[in-house]
Write a protein that binds this DNA or RNA. Structure first.
Lengths: 232, 232
DNA sequence: TGTACATCAGTGAACGCGCGTTCACTGATGTAC
DNA sequence: TGTACATCAGTGAACGCGCGTTCACTGATGTAC
């Protein structure tokens, strides 16, 4: 029988490597990860890293997975923290924004420049990419089914080609959405783009100089959106 | 008297260098600019580049300046192409989006990851950064003064701290805004974040899979915003 | 209790590479007279 | 028309650097019997 590996220490090294890589992204951009730099930081020689991540790409993939899950977990946790659906939407939106600000480089890794010469493995990445948004959709859906949310007249109809496109993947791939009106999907996607726009400008320092108090600016945008749905 | 320099050829070299640098950003990310690579592409040795840009940073600054001006020019041109103010707003928004899609790396240079180890000279960059938006504000202001635009009740009042912050720089630095209501500034900034959110998700390929037809999605977002202002 | 063995994280030297930047220089071109 | 001169874009060699990756290896640790 082989000797029992010290899995705790090994696991800790995996985490240390990722943590240093994250630090490197903060300091040198998402393209600034370097195996040799990580080794230096760990007081280890560079080839030792290969015992954990056989290629630089494997490390980047691990960071991507962590980032998607981290953002999604933050949102899920925010939603779980209350049962009022308006509060759930507000807290989930705040979670998106706060996570982005607290984890700028991870957020860029997900939603910003692709890393040169790195190709994400689609079978890992594509299902994960939807995770941050699904809980948002669920809350909207629940509120709708309970009659606490109504679709504003402006959005009652969805452009035919968008409707066809979305229906082509949404209902087949996500059976739980079978009773979700297309307008609800449309509105939620719109909310996503609005949240994302504020967050993207904010994390790169373009919004604060324009409004001073991004907190209030952001909260108002979310609140008015929810008001328009009658979700109180 | 010194010989007359061939300024046309020299000017052309400046442009060639920038064009190749832009191509490099597209292929290798905004951090992927390399003087040696540019020289190689031009069939020239690397030190020759120093006759044009004494440092890599100077080249990046030149690209930044071009990018800000390019985006601003596109928007100004769109506004000049019609006199109807609703159309001006729509075309300006489209110009922002289309320019970003046609010049992804330049757009990222402006609004995305900062380039590692590059510090933009603030005296050049800060005034330029406002250029893309000023024309938007002007159109809104004109329409308002001509009574073609009204502020929706939701936005009639602007949070006190934001109002104070904005008043602190807007009126002193831009005297032409003296008669601009704070709500109008607020609404225009909001429109910017909404445009920006859609554009940022789109250029990195996250929005098309969600809605199929980004054109329509974008147009609707702008149209509904303008409808709410009563600008027809 | 002692010995032979398997495991495997980490070592150290080496590879070939591309990078930004410096330096003294060359050689074509145009100007002055 | 001819000659001496100034300009200056571009050359070629060199610098020191950090990178990802490979390879044969060492040496501590724990297991089997």
């Amino acid at each position: 029988m082989p000797r029992s590996v010290d899995n705790n220490a090994r696991q800790a090294s995996f985490e240390t490597i990722k943590a240093i890589a994250r630090q490197q992204m903060i300091e040198n951009g998402t393209a600034g990860i370097s195996l040799r730099g990580i080794a230096r930081e760990m007081n280890i020689t560079a080839p030792a890293i290969y015992n954990y991540y056989p290629r630089l790409d494997d490390l980047i993939t691990a960071l991507l997975v962590d980032a998607f899950n981290g953002l999604a977990d933050a949102i899920d946790k925010a939603i779980a923290s209350t049962s009022n659906q308006r509060d759930q939407m507000i807290r989930a939106s705040n979670a998106y924004r706060n996570w982005a600000n607290a984890n700028k480089s991870d957020f860029q890794l997900i939603y910003g420049n692709p890393i040169p010469n790195y190709e994400a493995p689609r079978e890992v990445t594509v299902p994960l990419a939807t995770r941050p948004l699904v809980s948002f959709y669920q809350v909207m859906m629940q509120a709708y089914q309970q009659g606490k949310l109504s679709i504003p007249p402006d959005y009652a109809s969805v452009p035919k080609n968008i409707e066809d496109f979305v229906a082509g993947f949404l209902y087949p791939q996500y059976p739980q959405t079978a009773e979700m009106p297309m307008s609800l999907y449309y509105l939620m996607t719109l909310l996503w783009t609005r949240i994302h726009g504020i967050v993207m400008l904010e994390i790169f320092g373009h919004l604060e100089p324009s409004v001073g108090d991004v907190d209030t600016f952001f909260s108002r945008e979310i609140a008015i959106f929810l008001d328009n749905l009658g979700l109180s």
